[in-house]
Every structure is written in structure tokens, then in C-alpha cells.
Design a protein around this nucleic acid. Structure first.
Lengths: 219, 219
DNA sequence: TGCTTTGTTAAATGCGTATTTGAATTAGCA
DNA sequence: TGCTAATTCAAATACGCATTTAACAAAGCA
């Protein structure tokens, strides 16, 4: 250390940040090393020097973004553990949506791209990092749906919620791709949309729950 | 005509079909002309001869797929116009999901890719073709939500429904990308999932509706 | 039958981009 | 200060892939 290390860290870090932004914006294939280096104010060979190749940069950039964002957006949305389940689920949904809407949060935007066009490069790391959060969500859902809910109902409800959340990314992307046409999808008020998704989803969950409960109650 | 024409149509059509499949599977960028021609059993120069370039092939392939699928999946899901609104909305949702789940239906898979990574090539044609269906969906939603629903509530509900539908594509893609790991998202029973989305969404819509109605009723 | 148009083919060509190279520069340290 | 290792840089190199070319084949038509 330290000047040498910090200096080298600087370029490396600038590359990671630029890579996160560009990969999130364009996906793995469409992002070029040249553009990343340009934005990072680094020479084109620096990627090879610091990361070896584009694939590794992709991986490292995702990890870097993901870890960095963990501090910004606590997954529980700040709702205390003692709160009622639905409230905790609501907190989770809102936190997720805020993160998806955050232009500085690259990791989920990259996941979004990765889901649409899997490079398989992130498969392992992604599953390892995302699964815990997923399991927590499943836990909350299980509580909300009641003991009689089937595994399938659980997965379907999870899909319903995540689908709504990711829809935000789709609309964001479409909006910036299309200059000024019809279809004025207004997603500027993220808070309002988050509230909507919570209301919509909780109503959906209660409906599914009440479909399965009666069998037990009526017995 | 006729032998010459049919012969030429054959190659052209094989190219369109193969292109639809490959573009749906890999997206514009990742799909290669070589692979498309290989699957179409056509020479690599045939794309240039019949379509001029890759972009035009992309466009024509989408149009071809979209028109071809219109016959397979009637947008109203076969529900008569006289049926109650919620039933018609349910029919629409189910029809859309069946189409998204259909491995032979390429147009929506391509849209899905296009939404995640816009090439802007389809922007015009897509809007022209999709907007009518979108407007119909909006009409049904307006009826379901009641007169007092705001434009924003309408858009949000639409986003909720479409998000859930497209989630199916994401899960399908992830599944075929990941060999055999955890996260056993079972989307094999499409009918069951469609029913779920309908139940979930109608409950959500009713909840949103009852949020806005009381103001009028209580007055 | 010859002539023209339409389609097909294998082999270039050209371009964009990831990767490599080797020299030049800078930092750490004696 | 001089020496070594780490880092940066401009310029090659390599390679995949869209596009082009020009020869070839088949089909329609006289």
C-alpha cells in the first residue's frame, strides 16, 4: 500500500462502476469494452490487465454492484420483525421496487437482462446471492397464504409479485427507447406504483388464501 | 407461377419460420444469420437475396409470426361479447398466457426480448400492431375499475396484469438456461397458472375499485 | 431450341470488437 | 539515487459475423 494500491484500486473501481452502468443499460453482448473503458477513463487494455476478459469483468461488476446496493436498499424495507406479516411483505415489495427504480442500482437491471437473454455467466453467483432473499420472500408468503396453501400456489403468488415488480424495469426501458409516442406510461411516481403493487398483491393473496381456507373452516 | 413461385416461397417461408424461432430464442443480436440459414436449409446468401439484410428479416419474421399466431390465439379467448366484463377480461388474460406459453408462438417472445433490449427496429410496427389489443384491454379494465378510477390506476392495473403474464416468459427462459438446480419453478401446468393470474388479478382489481368507490357511495 | 429472369451456391470481403503485445510510464523501496 | 514491480498506453492481432460477389442452375417464355 498505499498510494500504489489506491491508485490501482481507482482504475479498477472506475471500471467496475462503468461496467455496471453499461451492462445494465445494454446487456452483456451489446456492451463494448471500448465504451466501458471510455466512460471509466481507462485504456482499452485495462480490462484485460485488471480482470482478464470481458466475462470476468461482467461477473465482478455484478458482484460489485450487488454488494454496493445492499447498503442502499435494506431488503426488509425497514419494517421491524415484530410487525404483522402483511406489513413485512409490503415492506419487502416496496424496497424491491425502489431498488428496481433506482437508476444507480445496476444489479437488478442486469438480472433483468440476464433473465431475458441468459448468458449463463451469472447463473451460479446469481443463484447463490439471490436465493436467500427469495427464500425470505417465500417465508413471508407462506405465512400470508396460510398452512393449507400448496407449494404451487406459493410459487404462483411469488411469480405474480415479482412479475409486477419487474414490469417496472420493462416500462422504464421502453420509455427511454421510444422518444415521444403514444402509450404514456407514467412511472415517474415510484412510491405510488409501489403502493399499488402492495394493495393489488395483498388483495390477490387474500383471495387465494380464502380459496383454500374454507375447506378447513367448513369442516 | 407456379413451380418457380412456390419454390421461391418455400425458401423464403422457411427462412421466416427459422428466423422467428431463433430471434425468439436468442434475440436480435445473439441470433446469427448463419444459424438461421442452417435451420432453414438455405444458403447463407439467401437472406440477402430475399430480404436484403438482417434487420429486414427481423421485421418480416416478426410480422409473419404475429399474423400467423392471430389465428391460433383469438385475443378474446373465445368469451362472447355479451359476457360480464370480468369474464371477458379473464378470457383475455388466459388467451394471452396460452400464447406466451406456446413454444410455437414467437412474436411475443420477440417482444419480450425487445422490451429488455430494444433494438428500436420493431418500435413502429410493434406499436401499430399491439396498440389495438392494448386499448381493448384498457377498455375492459376501465369497466372493471369503475368510472371513478384514475388514469394512473388504470395504467398500474394494466402493468400488474401484463407483468404477471410476462413473468411466465422469464421463468421459461430461466428454466431452459439452468440445467437442474434448486428453484423448481413449475410452470408446466399453464392452465393452472392462467387461472391463478385471473383470480389474483380480479381480486386486485376489485380491491383497487373498492378504494375509489366509497368516496362516491358515502357521499 | 435459345434467351431472360429468378434462385442458389461457395467463396470472398469488410467491419466491429475482444484480446494481445511490447514499449513507455509510474510507483514503491533500497 | 538506482532498481524492480506494477500499471498504463497505442498499436497490432485475431476472430466472428453480416454482407457482397460472381459463377452456376433452374424455370419460364419465345
Amino acid at each position: 500500500m498505499t498510494d500504489l494500491k489506491t491508485k490501482s484500486e481507482k482504475t479498477r473501481e472506475r471500471l467496475l462502476n462503468a461496467a455496471g452502468r453499461i451492462f445494465a443499460e445494454k446487456g452483456y453482448q451489446d456492451a463494448t469494452i471500448a465504451e466501458i473503458c471510455e466512460q471509466a477513463q481507462a485504456n482499452i487494455a485495462s480490462v484485460n490487465y485488471h480482470f482478464g476478459d470481458k466475462q470476468t469483468l461482467y461477473l465482478e461488476a455484478w458482484r460489485h454492484a450487488f454488494n454496493h446496493e445492499l447498503g442502499q436498499h435494506p431488503p426488509d424495507g425497514g419494517v421491524p420483525r415484530q410487525a404483522p406479516v402483511e406489513q413485512r411483505l409490503a415492506g419487502r415489495i416496496k424496497s424491491l421496487i425502489r431498488r428496481l427504480a433506482d437508476d444507480e442500482s445496476y444489479s437488478f437491471a442486469i438480472i433483468h437482462k440476464e433473465m431475458a437473454q441468459p448468458t449463463r455467466l451469472l447463473a451460479d453467483i446469481l443463484e447463490k446471492e439471490i436465493n436467500p432473499q427469495r427464500q425470505q420472500m417465500f417465508g413471508l408468503l407462506r405465512e400470508c397464504l396460510g398452512q393449507d396453501a400448496s407449494e404451487q400456489q406459493l410459487q404462483y403468488c411469488h411469480a405474480s409479485i415479482m412479475g409486477q415488480c419487474f414490469q417496472l424495469l420493462r416500462l422504464k426501458q421502453m420509455q427511454q427507447a421510444r422518444p415521444l409516442r403514444t402509450l404514456p406510461n407514467d412511472m415517474s411516481d415510484i412510491g405510488a406504483f409501489a403502493e399499488h403493487v402492495v394493495d393489488f398483491s395483498l388483495a390477490g393473496i387474500r383471495a387465494i388464501r380464502s380459496q383454500t381456507l374454507p375447506k378447513r373452516i367448513q369442516a
